[in-house]
Amino acid sequence: MLMHHLRVWRQFWLVAFMRQSAFRANFFLSLFEGLAQVVLVVTTFAIIYQYTPDIAGWTQAQVLIVVGLYRIVDGIINAQVAPNMREIDKYVQTGELDLLLLRPVESQFLVSTRLVALPELINIPIGLALLIYAGLQANLAWSISGILLALMLLLCGTLMIYAVWFMMMALALWFTWSPFESMVGNLFSIGRYPVDFFQRQVRALLTFIVPVAFATTFPAEALLGQLDPLIIVIAPIFALVLLLLSQRFWRWGLRSYGSASS
């Protein structure tokens, strides 16, 4: 069952490779976009940090670790998650969902994996470079356990973002569109700030409702050796809960899916 789905997924990546050759220019656009984002955020922080040595305990170099992690997560999300999420309401509107529902594969898996925007993966090396640079600036003690922990949290965080985004888009099953469609990008981009920058209520929001904290702030804390050990337990459990929730939500939505053309 799992193997079957993994093989289908691999095939989608192969298709993405073949389709990519039709849009070579996209690679350079993605490269530029990724670099531009880095320039924008780094400059913004450079300006702000003129006025303060730290923000909520985060030095400039430490914040750039978060920014680097955000680039990596953004690369994964933009390559594998976003292209699919952006289509879900369109599948409903055009009735293409009908065709996807006919396949003997989990429909949630199918609508979540079939499109891959390969050029966006360029953000991962960009983020990694920034992360290493910022880590050196912050005198980071690179420990294997810290890195593995950060990786685990980043993975959990990415899965959480996927699950939440997916549920937001699944609203289209009822309403043929999702009010969150234009919002998610802006919401998840808050991940480039450490959540400590915000007031308590906002921090809770960014941890449990729009769970960007798990994808960037917590991995950065893991690298810095400042992570609350409780998070190590919470992260995988919460990721699993959100994934199961998204599955339930999708199945519930499919029951009331009326299909665009009758």
């Binding site: 079957h4 093989r7 289908v8 691999r10 095939q11 989608f12 192969l14 396949r103 003997p104 594969v105």
Partner: peptide, 8 residues
């Protein structure tokens, strides 16, 4: 080839 995998 995708269908091949989907339909096993």
């Amino acid at each position: 080839l995708v269908h091949k995998e989907i339909y096993r």
